[in-house]
């Protein structure tokens, strides 16, 4: 009897441990930037040492990757023009039958959709939301893109702001659903797919143009700042072979991005008292060469084609 009770107790303890991990649903770790901790002021605490110890837990670490909406937006802002021929054709969608290909192409189609909508391409927007829904449905992401979402999009097809809001809502639905189900690695793969598509669109638009003083090239260089976040997130998903496969591609890109050195100047902070908007004043420079740029563009092309063809 006692042994039985002990057995049940063990099950409950194991369940409790499992729940504590499942509920948090995010990474934990120690403070990573040891260098910054010297300069960074710690949070104040009026608590005594014992109480502080009681509440001391491992600090949780999150990484936010660029979303397809954000990627398309910064490209347009950099002077990108619209070229439908660089999008992933919707006819390709019938070939995406594995979870990995559907997740990657959900990200890819969502970036294409965002890009098209920013240029008021109404019919393309409608076509691409349908194909993004097909990918989300294939991944069993319930209600990420519902029929009512599509109807709302159709009803507001000439209102760019509402369309972007609908696209960002579908992304939020997908990522929150996957997080709820403990499938964060799938959410990461979707974002990596969208990010690679953004790089592909950007490098395609640059083509043979000079890279010096080119705003789109500057946006490409900016992506170096997010590569390490992707590597960290994908490395966490050790039990997901799909994530490990995508990790290899991101590491290939990281090798090239690591050849670019970005020098960041010191930030000074200035707040407009009327608008209450703060400006972080600083400058940055990089040492991108033509050789490294074309190496990067070629690798992006190779990886993107491996995802879409």
């Amino acid at each position: 009897m006692n042994n039985k009770l002990l057995g049940s107790g063990r099950i409950l303890i194991l369940l409790a441990i499992f729940i504590s991990f499942a509920v948090t649903g995010c990474k934990t770790g120690t403070k990573q930037d040891a260098n910054s901790s010297d300069a960074e002021e710690e949070f104040d605490s009026s608590l005594d040492e014992n109480t502080q110890k009681k509440f001391q837990t491992a600090k949780r670490i999150f990484y936010s990757l660029p979303s397809p909406v954000e990627t398309a937006r910064i490209l347009k802002q950099a002077g990108a023009t619209y070229h439908e021929d660089i999008l992933n054709p919707i006819d390709n969608s019938s070939g995406y039958i594995t979870n990995l290909s559907m997740a990657l192409n959900l990200g890819i189609y969502t970036t294409d959709l965002s890009y098209a909508s920013l240029f008021d391409q109404t019919q393309v927007t409608l076509n691409y939301i349908e194909v993004a829904k097909k990918m989300a449905d294939g991944l069993n992401i319930m209600d990420a893109i519902s029929e009512s979402t599509i109807q709302r999009l159709e009803d507001n097809i000439n209102n760019r702001s509402i369309i972007i809001d609908i696209i960002s809502e579908t992304l939020l639905n997908s990522s929150s659903y996957l997080s709820e189900k403990g499938l964060e690695s799938t959410a990461t793969i979707i974002l990596v797919g969208g990010w690679v598509e953004g790089l592909y669109i950007a490098t395609s638009l640059v083509g043979d143009d000079p890279i010096k003083d080119n705003d789109i090239v500057q946006r490409i260089v900016d992506q170096k700042l997010s590569v390490d976040f992707m590597v960290s997130l994908l490395e966490e998903a050790t039990d997901d072979p799909d994530a490990q496969s995508v990790l290899n591609d991101v590491k290939d890109l990281k090798v090239i991005f690591d050849k670019i050195k970005i020098t960041q100047g010191e930030n000074t902070v200035e707040t407009d008292p009327e608008t209450n908007v703060t400006t972080l004043k600083s400058s940055s420079s990089n040492n991108l060469t033509k050789k490294v740029y074309y190496e990067l563009a070629s690798k992006v092309n190779e990886i993107r084609n491996s995802y879409t063809l």
């Binding site: 403070k31 009681k54 949780r60 999150f62 909406v69 939020l172 990522s175």
Partner: peptide
């Protein structure tokens, strides 16, 4: 305009988190 990303978790009083 919301960027579409989702970052939310249950935290206990006293707990700290970082987002990059």
């Amino acid at each position: 305009q919301h960027d579409g990303n989702y970052h939310a978790a249950l935290l206990i009083e006293g707990e700290e988190a970082e987002l990059y």
